[in-house]
Design a protein around this nucleic acid. Structure first.
Lengths: 203, 203
DNA sequence: ATTACAGGAGTGGTCTGACCACATAAAGTT
DNA sequence: AACTTTATGTGGTCAGACCACTCCTGTAAT
């Protein structure tokens, strides 16, 4: 596309092409991408442009690069954009609020979804650790059977933790929340979640 | 220097340096960064390495680049986190169901948020067009004052429309929904939203 | 003096070619 | 067979060359 006036920058198109290559070849995390020189020749662009695209994706943690070996698909869970973005965004109070708020909305939405689906949560976790909240919601999101929702939440959660926003909630509250969900008691689950996190609202 | 082992890749160090430059000079969105050549000379690195760093930051939406003019700090609220990641994450088969489901959850969450915020929607739109739904929710999300949420929703909406999932809902239902929101009637808004879109559920 | 235009300087966009550092497999040596 | 050397392929980095575009400035025409 983009006939005459190459409006789009080359490296952005290369990003798209790389995405296509991943799709077409069914590449999964760990899979190997063509070499930089190969990509350049194949797409008829300079190697430097290819590198700009690859470096951008690498900074995002979407690909992994090993000198002397090649470029590989990274496990999306290891995205490094947390540190990068947080460093730039930390100063922006608005973004901070957006992240926390959005995360809470999604968590609450997941709770509603679980109740609608009549799913139950197995609370076989040890809620005495710091990661209580993460593990609890991790389990919940997995139960929703909605990978997209899970991934969005993961990103937000990682992001938020990098902003040093910490919650200290006793495990008994999580257990009560899970009970309410398992019982399909929408109102109580709703109230419980709000009571747990409302006090931590940012302004 | 540091021959023993330049462990860190040059472009990553440049990213840090750029961050420092921004901090030291108190650069705000719209502020101008040194030129690529200037950065290269100043940091004693090649221009291509500088570009790799800048392109990565640009892909993230942290900086903005205008040919013939220079490189500028972008409004961090426009970060492209969601766009980039979504493109690489939404590859699986049941993405269709996840997208629709997640979008509906987020829409409902936004409705709840609006009600909690006691916001009101001005329904000055012409709901006789096909884009009814998009415009209606666009307006609603803008009112939530949560840019991140708006961005996530936009992605999902675009993605869904590309999957040829079309909704045909009369405008009167939107008007009733908005009324319920403006009245702060959570239950009715909830029911209205569900009644409107439940019938379109994907399995 | 004002306007219009041409040109220079600065900047990002892209490509090419050249090294270097490293990893791996093949070929050669013991 | 075990070890060593070599060749090849890969990412990492740099330097230089153009191009296209923006902006400013000096000159010429009005």
């Amino acid at each position: 596309m983009n006939e005459r006036g190459r409006q789009t920058k080359v490296y952005l198109e290369i990003v798209k092409k790389i995405k296509e290559i991943i799709d077409e070849n069914q590449l999964k995390p760990g899979g190997k991408l063509p070499s930089e020189r190969e990509l350049a020749e194949q797409l008829k662009v300079g190697r430097s442009s290819v590198r700009e695209a690859l470096r951008a994706l690498e900074l995002l943690g979407l690909i992994e690069t090993r000198r002397g070996e090649g470029t590989f698909i990274a496990d999306f869970r290891n995205h490094r954009l947390v540190e990068i973005l947080s460093g730039f965004i930390l100063t922006n109070e608005h973004a901070k609020k957006d992240v926390s708020e959005t995360k809470q909305l999604i968590e609450l939405a997941a709770i509603h979804l679980l109740i609608d689906q009549k799913k139950t949560i197995v609370d076989s976790y040890d809620f005495n650790q710091k990661k209580d909240r993460s593990r609890c919601f991790q389990k919940m999101f997995e139960q929703t059977d909605n990978y997209l929702l899970l991934k969005i939440w993961r990103i937000l959660a990682n992001f938020e933790s990098s902003l040093n926003v910490n919650y200290h909630v006793g495990k008994e509250r999580y257990i009560r929340l899970i009970q309410a969900i398992n019982e399909g008691n929408r109102e109580e689950a709703d109230d419980l979640y709000r009571s747990i996190f409302t006090s931590f609202d940012h302004r």
